Amino acid sequence: MNLSQQDWKSQLEADTNAVILDVRTEDEWNEGMIPNAILNDIYKGQGFLYRLEELDKSKNYYVYCKAGGRSAQACAVMNQMGFENTYNLEGGFMNWKGDVAFPEE
């Protein structure tokens, strides 16, 4: 499901069963990420799928990339794999107005 920036952020803040999933590359991730996100680069192909298999399908996944395209693809793949609740951030990280964190060195 696609959510606007505001809806994604407000729904995320109220969700006690949320996981934030960043599907960008590690280089993009290192330039800043949404706090508490986990990285799973969709360009890794089979590696991306393996990491998805390890995730708890009962959680609600808030997925983002740079502009919203890769994360929409990721949500579609996750839905096919049995994830029921995936939320794509429309406009992606480049339009994000919320807090930004940087990965630990």
Rank of each mutant, 00 (worst) to 15 (best):
P35E: 10
R51W: 06
K57H: 14
M1I: 09
D27C: 04
D27H: 03
E28I: 01
L3A: 08
W8Q: 01
V63N: 02
F48C: 03
Y61M: 09
T25H: 00
R51M: 05
E13I: 06
G32S: 11
M33A: 12
I34V: 14
E26R: 10
Y64V: 02
D56R: 05
L52Y: 04
K59R: 10
Y64M: 06
D56M: 15
D41F: 01
L39G: 07
D27M: 12
I42K: 00
N40K: 03
N40S: 09
L39W: 02
D15Q: 05
E54A: 15
S4G: 08
Y43D: 11
Y43I: 04
I38H: 05
L12E: 04
P35Y: 03
L21N: 00
Q5E: 15
I38W: 00
E26A: 11
L52E: 06
G47M: 13
V23K: 00
L55R: 12
N2G: 11
S58C: 08
W8V: 04
M33Y: 12
I38Y: 03
W29A: 02
G32V: 09
F48I: 02
E13T: 06
N60C: 10
D27P: 06
I34F: 00
Y50L: 11
Y64D: 02
G47I: 12
E26C: 11
E28R: 01
Y61H: 05
I34W: 12
L21D: 01
D15H: 13
Q11S: 10
E53T: 14
N30W: 04
R24Y: 03
V63A: 03
I42T: 05
L39Q: 07
D7T: 11
V19N: 14
D41L: 03
K59M: 07
N17S: 07
G45W: 06
I20A: 02
N17W: 10
Y50E: 06
E31K: 15
T25R: 01
E31D: 09
L55S: 06
I38V: 13
V19D: 07
L52V: 11
R51D: 12
S10F: 11
N30Y: 04
I38R: 11
L49V: 12
Y62I: 07
N2W: 12
V23S: 01
L21K: 00
I38F: 08
L49R: 08
P35F: 05
I20M: 06
M1Q: 12
G47C: 13
G45H: 11
I42P: 01
G45N: 12
E54C: 14
E54N: 15
M1F: 13
D56Q: 04
G32R: 06
T16Y: 06
R51E: 15
L55D: 06
M1E: 14
E31Y: 04
M1T: 15
N36R: 10
I20F: 01
P35V: 07
Q5R: 09
L49F: 14
W29C: 00
L52P: 08
T16V: 05
D22Q: 00
L3E: 10
Q46R: 07
L3W: 05
